[in-house]
Design a binder for these strands. Sequence first.
DNA 1: TAGCTATGTTCATTATATTGAACTATTTTC
DNA 2: GAAAATAGTTCAATATAATGAACATAGCTA
Lengths: 189, 189
Amino acid sequence: MENPPMIGKNIQKFRANRNLTLNVLSERSGVSKAMLSQIESDKVNPTVATVWKIARGLGVDLQDLLNVGAAPKRKFIVNRSESSVALETDDHGVNIKVLSPIDMVDDLEIYLLSFEPKSTLPSEPHYPGTEEYLTVVKGSVKVTAGGNTTELHKGDFIAYHCDIEHSIANVSSSPAIVHMVVRFSQVKK
Amino acid sequence: MENPPMIGKNIQKFRANRNLTLNVLSERSGVSKAMLSQIESDKVNPTVATVWKIARGLGVDLQDLLNVGAAPKRKFIVNRSESSVALETDDHGVNIKVLSPIDMVDDLEIYLLSFEPKSTLPSEPHYPGTEEYLTVVKGSVKVTAGGNTTELHKGDFIAYHCDIEHSIANVSSSPAIVHMVVRFSQVKK
DNA sequence: TAGCTATGTTCATTATATTGAACTATTTTC
DNA sequence: GAAAATAGTTCAATATAATGAACATAGCTA
């Protein structure tokens, strides 16, 4: 988004889809009819509180009215197994393969982790609000995050906040593979 | 969210994480230092344009500053393999297992797909902007989305927009397993 | 046609978001 | 220690978001 969002047409579209009149939406939202008209024609820069009221009156989420410049470009990105590079192979015996291209999406990263027997992947706290979603593809691992610890086996899934110290460990004597999705609550620079 | 978002503390947190002063952020964003101070202490109801400028100055997305009540406190969700139910097992020979709890996050869903030999999973177009991220865990599949088609093998990864007709097919004579992440561009109702 | 109702738009006023400058508080430097 | 610099907070002035009422522009009804 290069310019401030022009949410006028967006709001108008939502209102049209619900067959609501300005008067009705005004009553439901608590925003004056005049204001609604001006906002829809992008004559004013509404307050977030006002837009929130409108979203409430429309029964949608605030985000829905603001995501105007959301990327409409279609994607078809293939990352072949043989072409994907190992990000790092640290001395802990853990191989990290980046599945998602760097700038594919700005708040989502997908990895495939290969754990050798008795290997551990410790992690520093990520950005606040960051979450990780793990799926055990092969073997079993022990996940620790903020005092909580559990052991996962093949096919198990776990979601946890990782803005605190956390680690993934393969305590067994056979290799393990884990699919990992990292979700940032905020866009990376 | 029951009340209009109080984005003050949120902005302050982002600024603190970057070690930015009010003056610096003021220069970067074009919003006066006084305004920034008042916004951070929730003394005013800023304009969306103003918040957008701040987001720009912080290098984050507008959504990131507004998702105040969106924080899901859950920190450690485990979904055991034996306890997770199969969402549907259609006659096409495809088993869909939901890995992510329904309301874990509002714009992310994670599945594990099991394809029997010669099975296909066709899909209707999802919401506009929806994307899918596939990782082939076992076997190989053929992915089609909006005219594009490619064949993926074990360890391959693909990202594509799925707000159009798309399908995943196992054309081989051996079973296949695919890890799927669905990302919605807008919050679901 | 005229009248009537319902739509969305503009007008004048009020409320308040936004600003630059002055102010206070805290840290740094000598 | 005081002076200087840098942090964030309030202040008075201005720009503008937000409002209710008047206005316009249709579509109906008879």
